[in-house]
Amino acid sequence: MRLRRCGTDAVLVEVDSLGEVSAVRAAVRAAELPDLVELVPAARTVLISVRPGTGLGPVRRVLGEVDLSRPAEIRSREVRIPVHYDGPDLDLVARTAGMTAAEVVALHSGTEYEVAFCGFAPGFGYLVGLPEALRQPRLDSPRTKVPAGSVAIAGEFTAAYPRATPGGWRLLGRTDATLFDARREVPALLAPGDRVRFEVAG
């Protein structure tokens, strides 16, 4: 674990894996630090900021006790997202995985995922837990426009696109769920640590 100061009221924690990111995030969240302002995980870092003038001492004490091999237990929210599995890459994913399309759907929808971190676009959550059999590379030629609501896979991640953007992930289907709405009190549907299940839409 490496700590880098970010101004006077924040520290960037650098680690070596998503599992260690989860351990740091969970430990800081579980500590319920009263002056914590923001906790932002990414693929290999966690940014921790506190109220101006309160100091980073409590944060450093928590970090000094983190067991990177074992995430702290915290309560997480479960989010269910209905999916129409009719994506343009579903057959490609099935052929690559050596499965039928129905088997891909059953495997993807039968797995519980966790939001590791958010980024790329507002409301875009990178979900881990994708079964090994479904882990495939990005498309050789990214699409210039992926429709909002597209449910996709790439590498070790699965995700749903909150808005239309370019992208090279393989598209399994689409959801009608609103993944990001700036007018809501909490704009993003997904947050780091949430447990997510995709359900076959009727």
Rank of each mutant, 00 (worst) to 15 (best):
V151Y: 01
T165A: 07
P131C: 04
A23Q: 04
D89N: 09
Y113N: 04
A43M: 12
G123L: 07
L63W: 07
L190V: 02
Y161Q: 01
P52Q: 14
A148M: 08
D91M: 10
S109N: 09
V37Q: 13
L47I: 12
V28L: 12
P122I: 07
L3N: 03
Y113P: 02
F124P: 00
T45M: 10
A101S: 14
D67I: 07
R2E: 13
L179M: 08
I48E: 04
G123T: 06
P137S: 06
L12S: 10
T96W: 09
A30E: 12
G155I: 02
L18R: 13
R61K: 13
R95K: 13
R2F: 10
L68G: 09
V21S: 04
G98D: 07
W169T: 00
C118M: 13
A164G: 06
E185F: 01
R183S: 15
G19K: 03
P82L: 12
L90K: 05
G167S: 04
G173L: 06
A97S: 12
V105W: 01
L33T: 05
P34Q: 10
D176L: 12
P41L: 09
A164L: 09
E112W: 11
S22M: 10
A182E: 15
D16W: 05
V146H: 06
P34D: 08
A177G: 06
E78F: 09
L68D: 10
L107I: 13
E112H: 13
A72C: 13
T45F: 10
A116F: 03
T8Y: 13
Q136G: 00
P162D: 06
A42Q: 10
F117C: 02
G193W: 00
P122E: 08
L18T: 14
A148S: 15
L3E: 07
S141L: 11
R29K: 11
F120Y: 13
V196C: 11
V93F: 09
H84L: 14
A188M: 06
E114V: 15
R61I: 08
V151R: 00
R163I: 10
L127V: 07
P34K: 09
R2G: 05
R29P: 01
S17H: 05
E199G: 09
L12G: 04
E78Q: 14
P147H: 09
G125K: 00
E38F: 08
F157S: 00
G53W: 13
